[in-house]
């Protein structure tokens, strides 16, 4: 039986590769642990790469996005299927 637990990570999607790399550089510069990954199959995006980060950073990260004029598409929580 499959069961969804709480989200482990989140991904940010972007309209273009440029914005994904810009966001990666910005967050890394601020000390966040982020990783560029192929867009997970359950999500649709205009761009093939997304930025994954730890779920517990989501509020601090959202605040940064607002302040930094980073062009993002969406933020999704990612659930690990057990």
């Amino acid at each position: 039986m499959f069961k969804k637990n709480s989200p482990e990570s989140c991904v940010i999607t972007f309209s273009a590769v440029y914005h994904a790399l810009k966001a990666e550089k910005h967050f890394k510069g601020l000390g966040f642990k982020v990783k560029l990954i192929p867009v997970p199959r359950q999500i649709s995006s205009n761009c093939g790469i997304a930025l994954e980060f730890n779920f517990r950073d989501r509020e601090r990260l959202a605040a940064v996005i607002q302040g930094a004029r980073l062009a993002i598409e969406n933020i999704y929580p990612l659930f690990k299927i057990l």
Binding site: V17, A20, L21, C47, G48, I49
Partner: peptide, 22 residues
């Protein structure tokens, strides 16, 4: 191919172009 495919080699190529732009 930069940023076309999402795998790490494609991301590495995209990063080269991004860094040059920066």
């Amino acid at each position: 191919n930069p940023g076309r495919s999402g795998h790490r080699v494609s991301i590495a190529a995209a990063r080269i172009i991004f860094e040059a732009r920066e």
